[in-house]
C-alpha cells in the first residue's frame, strides 16, 4: 500500500500533465488540469514551509544546547529567524512596525541587512571566477592551451578596448569570433548537451510515470 498509492498518484499526475499539452484548455477538462495541478503544487509547498521552520529551529537549537562547533552561528540563525518572522506575522493594525509593509521591522531588516548581505555574497563571485579561471586556463595540455587561447579571444571581444585591439589586427575578427566560436562551436556543444539532457529528463519522467523508477520515494 505504501508503494502502490504513491506510484498511482505519480502515474496519474504525470500522465495528465503530459497529455494536457495536446488539448485546448478552453475546450476540454483535461486541458484545464495542467494549470490546476500546478496551483496544487504551490499550495502544498506553502503548507510544507512549516516543516522547514521546524527543521531549522531543531537543528540550530540542538547545536546551541550541545555547544557544537560553531554554535554561535546557530544562535545567530535562531535569533534572525524569529526576529524576522514574528513581527511580520503580527497584524499591522497593532503597530506600523508589524506586518511586511514599508517601514515595518521586517521591511527594515530585509532592505538594510538581508539585501546587502545577498549582494555581498553575489559580488564575491568575481573573485571565485578569477581563482577557478586561473586553474582552468593553465596551459598544461593541448586541450587546456586551446581553451586558454579561445577564452582570451572571447574575453577580448567582450570588452570595448579588446574589440578595438582585435579590429586593429583585422576588421572582421570580432565578427569571426562571434560566428565561429560563439554561434558555431559553443552553440553546437550547448545544443548537444541540451538535447541529451531533455531526452534524459523525458526518459526519467517516463520511468517515474510507469513506476519503474521509485528511488525518489525511498523504494527500489
Amino acid at each position: 500500500m505504501r508503494t502502490t498509492v504513491p506510484v498511482v498518484i505519480a502515474f496519474l499526475s504525470g500522465l495528465v500533465l503530459a497529455v494536457s499539452i495536446f488539448f485546448r484548455p478552453d475546450k476540454t477538462i483535461i486541458g484545464q488540469l495542467e494549470p490546476e495541478l500546478l496551483v496544487w503544487v504551490t499550495i502544498i509547498g506553502g503548507f510544507t514551509l512549516f516543516l522547514g521552520a521546524v527543521s531549522i529551529t531543531r537543528v540550530n537549537f540542538n547545536a546551541v544546547q550541545r555547544r557544537k562547533k560553531g554554535w554561535g552561528y546557530s544562535l545567530l540563525t535562531l535569533i534572525s529567524v524569529f526576529v524576522m518572522a514574528l513581527p511580520s506575522l503580527l497584524p499591522s493594525t497593532w503597530s506600523p512596525l508589524f506586518g511586511d509593509a514599508e517601514g515595518s521591522i521586517y521591511d527594515w531588516l530585509f532592505q538594510y541587512l538581508d539585501k546587502p548581505m545577498m549582494a555581498t555574497m553575489f559580488g564575491m563571485l568575481a573573485f571565485y571566477i578569477a581563482s577557478a579561471a586561473y586553474r582552468a586556463f593553465r596551459a598544461r595540455s593541448a586541450e587546456a592551451t586551446i581553451l586558454l587561447l579561445t577564452a582570451t579571444l572571447v574575453m577580448l571581444w567582450r570588452v570595448p578596448m579588446g574589440e578595438a585591439f582585435l579590429r586593429s589586427i583585422h576588421t572582421a575578427l570580432p565578427e569571426w569570433i562571434n560566428t565561429y566560436v560563439m554561434n558555431g562551436v559553443n552553440m553546437a556543444v550547448q545544443r548537444g548537451i541540451i538535447i541529451g539532457a531533455a531526452l534524459g529528463a523525458a526518459s526519467m519522467s517516463l520511468r517515474i510515470i510507469l513506476g519503474i523508477e521509485r528511488t525518489y520515494m525511498g523504494k527500489g
Partner: peptide
C-alpha cells in the same frame, strides 16, 4: 553533464530494468 545526471540513479542501481530506459534514450538520440 546533462543526461548523465538522469542516468546516475539507474547506473548506480545496476538493475537491468532501469538500464533499459537508458538504452531506449540512446536509440532516440
Amino acid at each position: 553533464m546533462g543526461e548523465e545526471l538522469y542516468a546516475a540513479s539507474s547506473y548506480l542501481s545496476k538493475e537491468p530494468l532501469m538500464l533499459g530506459g537508458l538504452k531506449g534514450q540512446d536509440f532516440i538520440k
